[in-house]
Amino acid sequence: MRPSATAYIYIAPAFALLLFVLFSPVIYGFWFTLFRIEYGAPTDFIGLGNYVRLIEDPTLLPTLSRSGVFTAACVVFTIIIAMALAVWINRLPARTAFIVQMVVIVPWIISAVVATLLFRWVFVNDIGVASYIIQLMGFDAVQPLNNPTGAMVLLVAVSVWKRIGYAVLVLLAGLKSIPDDYDEAARIDGANNWQIFRMITLPLLKTPLLLIAIVLTLSTFNTVETPLVMTGGGPGDATRILAMDVYERAFTNYDLGSATALAIIMFAGNILLVMSYVRLARWQA
């Protein structure tokens, strides 16, 4: 390690970009919300007026709780399914495991807009394959997007489907770092598969599990594309979640004041998650 001021020259450009794009808008955004906004421009100073207006908005609380339910359901289901898949893939022969892993992460590497669109085409559309299979099985064709619960279930399904690949990838990396000896030792002591998983694998996967829980929570909580493309927030407001609400407040209702205020509140929520992420990510300096 060389003690050197030259280092600042090397990191300055990167930090200039991060400061300009990632950090300063928060400060400017907060300043912006302290004013009354007319035609997209700040007019007179109203202090926390935008926030007060936001909190008095009767739609805020239901939206917040919907976001909570949606995020929790997505994270829980994604982790459970990904865990099962990762344990299974980890036992496959190397070549098969690689191919399966590649297939599993496909929905994750394509864009949320396209993934949601294709998911909708197959599983939701009345002339789609899924509807055909349902009718083959003797059920009536359903229009799940027309009822609030069905729409929410589908929204969770598409979000889980989209992100499983990421979770599998991280969990697989975690599983690979567990030495085989542990398994063998436990087996010699008479442990069965479930006991090995519960007592050895799971505790050793604590860090990656927490890490994906945080990342999944962040990415699900802040998702705009999926509800926008899948349900448009409907029927009614049944699938209007917070991130989409911010987007629509700003660009459908042109209410930049409350949109920015809500964004700042969401950002504060994100910061809590980011802090726990940083604690977990083993960083050496």
Binding site: A14, L18, L22, Y28, G29, A243, F267, M275, A281
Partner: peptide
């Protein structure tokens, strides 16, 4: 400073929340 970089990884994952402030800025 490195901590700031590490924190920016999840921050960018939740970038949608920042987008409206970013837009007005």
């Amino acid at each position: 400073l490195f901590l700031a970089v590490v924190a920016s990884i999840p921050l960018s994952i939740g970038a949608a929340a920042l987008l409206i402030p970013n837009y007005v800025y």
